[in-house]
């Protein structure tokens, strides 16, 4: 299931704007990698390029290689739809489908891919909801709309929806930024749980969160306004937080930034 990601000299653009310059990094399977860095340095942009969501934005393009177990997802023969089926994503703001019930939200990926077998869908829904730690809270109202849940529940619903299609990699862009500490903790526990089966990349502004959940941490930075963002360093989380190689990393982590 879980696969490794190798990014080689990736440059990302929005139209003429060069947003991210020359990123090279590797994410081993069954590993959590955290992206940290100041706002606007390109964390979300890099994350979205890992499952070809970047190019959904008009004018946006990517140069370089992203290898999933050695296979370039940007090769011209590759269908972006199949890439996204393999590499799932959870967004900063919970975005359940408003027209669908909780159950249908969870199995949306399968249902829209043509799976009709009701029994199988029910099983998948239960497994994904249990996986996302949401089953107990919603098992009595699976047919109610997903929009009626609390923000934290909605975010876990979105995680359930992402894992229901059984991707190899899970990308999360600040999944806890809109949540209270308890829901945050629930999602952090969930990430630790999911690590057994998935390769996970998570963007976060919360240093403690990065320190708690990730195995390795990548620090991105901007050299100046209008300049592209860069990867400053990537290393084991322990090392980044105790003894980083770059001074900029240390400054950022200790809050002596800018």
């Amino acid at each position: 299931m879980a696969k490794r990601i190798d990014v080689k000299d990736l440059n990302l653009f929005y139209g003429k704007f060069h947003a991210v310059d020359g990123v090279t990094l590797s994410v081993p399977p069954r590993n959590v990698t955290a992206f940290i860095g100041p706002s606007g340095c390109g964390k979300s942009t890099v994350l979205r390029s890992l499952n070809r969501m970047h190019e959904v934005i008009p004018g946006a393009r990517a140069e370089g290689e992203v290898l999933l177990d050695g296979e370039d997802i940007y090769a011209s023969s590759v269908d972006p739809v199949s890439v996204r089926r393999t590499i799932g994503m959870v967004f900063q703001r919970p975005n359940p489908f408003p027209t669908m019930s909780i159950r249908d939200n969870v199995v949306a990926g399968l249902k829209l891919a043509g799976v009709r077998d009701k029994k199988k869908l029910d099983e998948v829904a239960e497994r994904a909801l249990r996986g996302a730690n949401l089953w107990a809270e919603v098992k009595d109202r699976l047919n109610k709309p997903g929009g009626g849940l609390s923000g934290g529940q909605q975010q876990r619903l979105c995680i359930a929806r992402a894992i229901a299609v059984q991707p190899d990699v899970l990308l999360m862009d600040e999944p806890c930024s809109a949540l209270d500490p308890i829901s945050t903790l629930a999602i952090e526990d969930l990430i630790t749980e999911l690590k057994k089966d998935y390769t996970i990349v998570i963007v976060t502004h919360n240093m403690q969160q990065a320190a708690r959940v990730s195995d390795q941490t990548a620090f991105f930075n901007l050299l100046g306004v209008g300049q592209p963002g860069r990867l400053i360093e990537i290393d084991d989380t322990e090392k980044i937080f105790s003894n980083p190689t770059e001074k900029a990393t240390e400054d950022y982590i200790s809050g002596r930034f800018g």
Binding site: N51, M53, V56, V81, S82, V83, R84, R85, T86, G88, M89, F91, R93, N95, P96, F97, P98, T99, A108, G109, L112, A113, C158, R161, A162, V165
Partner: peptide
């Protein structure tokens, strides 16, 4: 965000439009 949520599940664009965008 809804379109992106759908794409991220590996749902093709036309299906996203027919099953997610138009029903909404």
């Amino acid at each position: 965000e809804l379109r992106e949520a759908s794409y991220a599940l590996g749902i093709p664009k036309w299906k996203t439009i027919v099953k997610i965008v138009v029903p909404t």
